[in-house]
Design a protein around this nucleic acid. Structure first.
Length: 489
RNA sequence: CGGGGCGUAGCGUAGCCUGGUAUCGCGCCUGCUUUGGGAGCAGGAGGUCCCCGGUUCAAAUCCGGGCGCCCCGACCA
């Protein structure tokens, strides 16, 4: 009777654990169409909070939202040579509509560079029209071979920022700035520490000059690319004739950037914080921060406890945490379900705090407060509950980031190792390995072939080792870059 | 696309070898008793056994064909 209630443990089978926990916490479900998923209210609630937070951050950095169409003329994709090569294999194409074959097939956007820069070309004439800073929230479709809930689905939700600038350097600053926004968001809200850095040519976005990324370590020591930001140079501007008159009176092609994060972040959240009891949602992203579970043995107690629960929920809901947001409180008043069963359910769903409230507590003017991350219980006075809850939530938010950071560093290797040792590590538990690279794509490819590990990025200064590696991990030649090597999702 | 597994009630499954009343658990509904870590009893609802064809008096079961899904690889946020 017990076994089917327990999750497969992370240790036994991380991949099976992930699938089960996503389904059982009701974040998402499979759809009738292969590779697509339905995002259920629990999952969408987290996404909505991610969206709202990021959207505010984009606005604060001067961006405006707009919306561009789902369908793009097939010919647009072909205008940028590298871009079409990168995306053609995974593009869904509409050939028939309105009962007729279309004269020109339409592609379902896999990303919107082509349609957006073709429109920018109409809107930009002068340097005075720059910079143009646009973001859109949208769905995109990429026909993937193998899919996994949230991590890789045929259709996914994302935001894509697209900007146009007068100079290369200005575009570069923008690309780096938005990478910083992503980092702040992931560490500050998802409590998911990331390494920032630059992609090698092999992993660079098709059509970009340079691609920057944020990479996070999951609990199986694999890397998750959680977001990317590209300096597109003038590649798309040239393809779509996005020109402007310069201050000096000449004409030049604009410099573009694009940057995006997706619903994949929800998967990152799950694999960063989840445990064998379910998911753990960081307080700032939790649709419900505190659930009150009333305990009673008869109608009279039920009436009293629920009355107290409602009073408390009302007070907490009005509790001002200085940023003038309200505590998001839910009372689980379902009858005929034992308190223990409710505990398990809310733990599976990762709700940050639980307040157990029974007759004995009321008599003592207290409740029992339980943290989801540590599952630690402690009695709290009802007189100071607002302060206690607010403090516990911020402590939990901090502790979750710290724990994830500790785990990442404990599973990172910065000392020089032989290639044989590297192979052992990648065949075993995996790790983030900081090691030298000669710069030759052939070495990078050979490592991938032999170990499944890839260069996740050339880490930014702050993440590099105190002493730079001197030799290439694979060939032993002179290292030109310190690289972060890991297996990836 | 290669390898593996699986399609039987909402979910998980037994039955298939050896053809004959479709099994069990969870969940769901009703009632009563319960409720401080996954409640108990009683009653009840729920099925194109993935699809099409064949063999047979009779097919979940045997035969042929198809479809779908999941897992592992090659491509990718």
């Amino acid at each position: 009777m017990a076994d089917d209630k327990k999750l497969t443990t992370r240790k036994a089978d991380f991949s099976a654990w992930y699938n089960e926990v996503v389904l059982r916490s009701e974040l998402a479900d499979y759809s009738p169409v292969r590779g697509c998923m339905v995002i259920r209210p629990n999952g969408y609630g987290i996404w909505e909070r991610m969206q709202r937070t990021l959207d505010d951050m984009f606005k604060a950095t001067g961006h405006q939202n707009a919306y561009f169409p789902l369908f793009i003329p097939e010919s647009f994709l072909r205008k940028e040579a590298e871009h079409v090569e990168g995306f053609a294999p995974e593009v869904a194409v509409v050939t028939h509509a309105g009962g007729k074959k279309l004269e020109e097939a339409l592609i379902v956007r896999p990303t919107s560079e082509t349609i957006i820069y073709s429109m920018f070309a109409k809107w930009v004439q002068s340097y005075r029209d720059l910079p143009l800073l646009i973001n859109q929230w949208a769905n995109v479709v990429r026909w993937e071979m193998r899919t996994r809930l949230f991590l890789r689905t045929t259709e996914f939700l994302w935001q894509e920022g697209h900007t146009a600038h007068a100079t290369h350097d200005e575009a570069e600053v923008e690309a780096r700035k938005m990478l910083g926004v992503y980092r702040d968001f992931m560490e500050g809200y998802i409590a998911m520490p990331v390494i920032t850095g630059q992609k090698t040519d092999a992993e660079r976005f098709a059509g970009a000059l340079r691609t920057y990324c944020v990479e996070a370590m999951m609990q199986d020591n694999k890397a998750l690319q959680a977001g990317t930001s590209h300096n597109l140079g003038q590649n798309f501007a040239k393809a779509f004739d996005l020109k402007f008159q310069t201050e000096a009176g000449g004409t030049d092609y604009a410099w573009n950037t694009s940057w995006g994060v997706t619903t994949r972040m929800v998967g990152g959240l799950v694999m960063t914080h989840g445990d064998d009891n379910g998911i753990v949602v960081p307080p700032l992203l939790a649709p419900i921060e505190l659930v009150i579970v009333p305990i009673y043995r008869n109608d009279e107690e039920r009436t009293n406890v629920l009355e107290a629960a409602n009073r408390i929920a009302g007070l907490l809901g009005a509790w001002d945490r200085r940023e003038s947001s309200r505590l998001r409180v839910h009372i689980d008043a379902r009858d005929g379900m034992k308190p223990g069963a409710k505990y398990y359910e809310w733990e599976m769903r990762g709700i940050p705090l639980r307040l157990e409230l029974g007759p004995r507590d009321l008599a003592a003017n207290q409740g029992v407060l339980v943290r989801r991350d540590t599952r630690a219980k402690r009695p709290v006075s009802l007189n100071t509950l607002g302060e206690d809850v607010a403090e516990t939530l911020s402590a939990m938010q901090r502790d979750m980031l710290a724990a994830a950071l500790d785990r990442r560093e404990a599973n990172s290797i910065r000392t020089a190792i032989t290639y044989d040792r590297f192979r052992e590590i990648m065949a075993g538990d995996g790790a983030f390995v900081y090691a030298g690279w000669c710069g030759d794509p052939a070495c990078e490819a050979a490592v991938k072939e032999e170990t499944k590990a890839t260069i996740r990025c050339i880490p930014d200064e702050e993440f590099r080792s105190a002493e730079a590696p001197t030799t290439c991990l694979r060939c032993g030649g002179v290292s030109t870059n310190e690289a972060l090597w890991a297996k990836a999702y």
